[in-house]
């Protein structure tokens, strides 16, 4: 038996050092499809080697261990503050041993807290659910380079010729891909939210990263748009790291939520190839690991 804190420390370690299976398979496929003896192939071979080394050395895949985003599904009445306290302790420990970089900086003074704790860091999203048995705790570590190439569009947008329809959404999403080039560490994955307000649009776009790359959107229009975005992006020749090449995106996941009549936001979050997401189902007391999710 171990404590909730110890199990969350293991969740952080695995998230930081091991790639989820679905993403590493997509990267290997991209390597196989890339033209040989090119800088794009060099980039993907380096990525493959890096994934292997990080796992075997138990050290971070990427030095930017990113924003620490917890998504927790729990039974109604669950002790959320208790979870937060254990997670904070686990984060401090993970930072001390180098699974996480010191990544929490005071925005006014520039002072690094050194522990990854501070106002706004880490972040927790709790979803209590009546049918939930045990605690489903998922973690996404999202680096700053890919966060910086995220974009939010307010339609209509005459600059890119985007109206308030699915075609307009497509134009907005493709503009985000073009502007990002290799700067978000391509080949990446897009999480997109159509609708919402400026805050919830980005929040929902990030929740798309919890989906498996090879799942299928239950909404046929969105499923078609997701496929179309990936196919179109991979005809642009941006390629791994923006070196030029065949794979620019590994996936695109889109959701739609309602909006105000006055607003039509398309929020695009970019996840780098070093797609760090893991999850664990714990017993309600946090002491037992029932299963790993990804």
């Amino acid at each position: 038996m171990s404590s909730l804190k110890e199990n969350l420390l293991e969740l952080i370690r695995r998230t930081s050092v091991e790639m989820p299976d679905d993403v590493s398979r997509a990267l290997i496929r991209a390597l196989q499809e890339e033209e040989k003896h090119t800088t794009a192939e060099f980039a993907l071979k380096t990525i493959r080697l890096n994934m292997e080394m990080a796992a075997s050395k138990s050290q971070p895949i990427c030095q930017d261990t990113g924003s620490i985003l917890f998504y927790v599904r729990c039974p109604v009445g669950y002790d959320q503050p208790g979870f937060e306290a254990a997670a904070r302790e686990a984060v401090v420990q993970a930072t001390k041993v180098g699974y996480l970089r010191q990544n929490s900086v005071d925005s006014l003074t520039g002072k690094n807290s050194g522990t990854n704790l501070g106002p706004g860091t880490p972040t927790f999203h709790f979803h209590p659910d009546r049918g939930q048995r045990g605690v489903d705790a998922r973690l996404v570590l999202k680096g700053g380079g890919c966060e910086n190439v995220g974009a939010q569009y307010s339609l209509p947008d005459s600059r890119i010729g985007a109206d308030r329809d699915l075609k307009g959404c497509r134009r907005a999403i493709m503009d985000a891909v073009l502007q990002a080039q290799g700067k978000g560490c391509s080949p990446g994955v897009l999480g997109v939210c159509i609708g919402g307000d400026r805050a919830t649009g980005y929040a929902y776009s990030k929740e798309q990263f919890l989906r498996l790359l090879d799942d299928r959107n239950p909404n046929p229009d969105l499923a078609a748009l997701e496929e179309d975005i990936v196919r179109t992006a991979n005809q642009l020749g941006i390629g791994p790291m923006g070196f030029g090449g065949r794979t620019t995106l590994l996936g695109c996941k889109i959701c739609a939520v309602n909006r105000l009549p006055a607003s039509f936001f398309v929020s695009v979050s970019y996840m780098c190839w070093a797609f760090r997401r893991q999850g664990v189902v714990l017993s309600e007391d946090g002491a037992k690991i029932e299963k790993w999710i990804y």
Partner: peptide
């Protein structure tokens, strides 16, 4: 000089 982004272990080596 462009290093491969995200390849923190290959480069730390």
């Amino acid at each position: 000089l462009h290093a491969v982004g995200g390849a923190a272990q290959v480069l730390a080596e």
